[in-house]
């Protein structure tokens, strides 16, 4: 009896997921469609004569931008970890004066609209000559992830048993040793979650890229898709092919790190 009921639920779940993921399917479908069939009415529900011309057009022009996005993403991961992990340690396990205030500032920092930050960065970068530079974009993109990272590390490290820290101290380990050889190894999963999000946010960023890096040779993939749409509205198969490739990190994350993704979404909002 119960088995029958759950089968019914599974069928419904599959239907819901299919509706939800239809845009993703459609993106893949269009990316494989011949240019001549793009405007056919009604549109083909399946790639009838699948072609890779969209992908080869993408390879011709978009490859460098994928490299730029990769570099920016990795740069953001390193920067975010380097700042967030020690700060989380200080806020959770050490006696940091004003820790609560800092916690509050971080919560508020996450609420500042990116447009406003972009204007501030633009004004600063104009003077410093950092516009259209890789470093400038890494710095700006990291502001999306750093407050989140600190809060996540703080929340996790607060749960580390004090006895462990005390024991390390008795063994003569200083704060730095304790951090490197005890706290960080235990916090490996948190570090993974923070890295995943820092990478994904930097990879997906559009606002900072379109304001701080719009004229340079170092264009990330989000911006290059945007420029592609602006320039040729007929080549939607190539646009969608680029979009498919730009979605690869998200797909990889979902397959290999789904646990950490769910942990990250929840961490910011709900205390367990």
């Amino acid at each position: 009896m119960t088995a029958r009921r759950t089968w019914w639920k599974t069928a419904l779940g599959v239907l819901f997921a299919a509706i939800m993921l239809f845009p993703v399917y459609w993106m893949i479908n269009v990316s494989l469609t011949q240019r001549g069939d793009l405007r056919s009415n009604p549109p083909h529900l399946f790639p009838v004569n699948p072609t890779l011309e969209g992908y080869s057009a993408m390879l011709d022009g978009q490859l460098p931008s994928l490299g730029v996005s990769l570099l920016v993403g990795l740069g953001c991961v390193v920067l975010t970890l380097a700042i967030a992990a020690p700060a989380g340690y200080a806020m959770s396990l050490l006696r940091l004066p004003g820790g609560r205030t800092l916690n509050f500032i971080l919560l508020v920092a996450q609420m500042i609209p990116a447009v406003v930050m972009a204007m501030g960065f633009y004004a600063i970068y104009v003077r410093l000559g950092l516009l259209n530079s890789l470093w400038g974009l890494i710095l700006a993109d990291s502001t999306i992830a750093v407050p989140f990272g600190v809060l996540l590390f703080t929340a996790f490290m607060s749960g580390i048993p004090r006895e462990l820290i005390q024991a390390a101290k008795i063994d003569g380990a200083g704060a730095w040793r304790t951090f490197v050889s005890i706290v960080m190894p235990i916090s490996r999963n948190s570090a993974l979650t923070v890295s995943l999000f820092a990478f994904l946010w930097a990879w997906s960023d559009f606002v900072f890229a379109s304001t701080l890096n719009r004229n340079g040779s170092m264009v990330p993939v989000t911006l290059s898709i945007y420029a592609f749409i602006g320039n040729n509205t007929t080549q939607w198969n190539a646009i969608m092919a680029t979009a498919v490739v730009a979605s690869v990190p998200a797909a990889v994350l979902l397959v290999f790190a789904q646990r950490y993704v769910a942990a990250g979404v929840t961490a910011g909002a709900v205390k367990d």
């Binding site: 993703v24 997906s204 559009f206 979009a243 979605s247 979902l254």
Partner: peptide
Amino acid sequence: LVPWLLPLI
């Protein structure tokens, strides 16, 4: 989770 993970562009 997919829609949330895709780049907005």
